[in-house]
Amino acid sequence: MSERIEIKIDRDMCKGCGICIKYCPKEVLARSEDLNQYDNHYPEVVSADKCISCRRCELYCPDFAIEVKEVKDEKEEKE
């Protein structure tokens, strides 16, 4: 049974400080072009497959806006 890593970003909680982007060791995140409701550039997942689930972004985020979850892959479970 394999596990999939899911990165959940709450766009409207983000203040666009960029700390998660800076401290990601694998450069998974990047600054978005779009703006959220408070006119901040939130982070976007650009290479999800590189994520090692160290959860550093989650630990450093001052606004609890990013979360790394390990989700069990349902498709394989059915097989």
Partner: peptide, 30 residues
């Protein structure tokens, strides 16, 4: 390890906080 969403539900109220973007205050709360 507790997730950010669990912290937000269990320990944080009145979110988003009034701290400036990039302030260390939220990190101390975390």
């Amino acid at each position: 390890m507790i997730t950010a969403e669990e912290i937000r539900e269990k320990y944080v109220r009145n979110h988003p906080s009034p701290f400036c973007p990039g302030c260390g205050g939220g990190m101390v709360l975390n």
